[in-house]
């Protein structure tokens, strides 16, 4: 059987994590190709709908990347993101949807290596978790 390759949708903030991911690229940090990046202006711009949509449509994981606390270029977007993710993960926990498929991480523009490591680690964790059951459930 072919090994399961998780699909990760990543919402990365323009100023920090997206730039950090780019730095991973320019410094040739290698990481698995399982991630598809969607460029957002701020981690606080990630609507719950996007995360849910991705997971219901069958993404195995969602990564939200933002500036470290205190570094948000829009003052407090990352704190807002954290609360939003916290609420969503609690909902998931309550309704039996694995909340560990959602990762929120603070990765700065200078942390290219951290970005690559995070993706590598997330892919490993998701492989352990197995495919998102929603991939097969057409009844959503």
């Amino acid at each position: 059987m072919e090994e399961f390759e998780p699909r990760i949708i990543a919402f990365l903030c323009h100023w920090c994590t997206y730039t950090g991911a780019d730095l991973a690229g320019t410094t040739r940090q290698q990481y698995p190709p399982n991630i598809r990046i969607i460029h957002m202006m701020c981690s606080g711009a990630v609507d719950t709908i996007y995360i849910l949509k991705a997971l219901i449509d069958g993404a195995d994981g969602v990564l939200i990347g933002g500036c470290h606390p205190g570094d948000c270029h829009y003052q407090t977007g990352n704190y807002k993101a954290r609360r939003r993710v916290g609420i969503l993960k609690e909902i998931f926990h309550q309704v039996g949807f694995t909340e560990d498929r959602i990762w929120l991480r603070w990765i700065s523009a200078s942390e290219g290596k951290l970005f690559a490591d995070t993706v590598t680690q997330m892919v490993e964790e998701l492989k352990k978790m197995g495919p998102n059951p929603m991939k097969k459930l057409w009844l959503a």
Partner: peptide, 8 residues
């Protein structure tokens, strides 16, 4: 400044 806090 286009942070989209309000949008979300």
């Amino acid at each position: 400044r286009g942070c989209s806090s309000c949008v979300v």
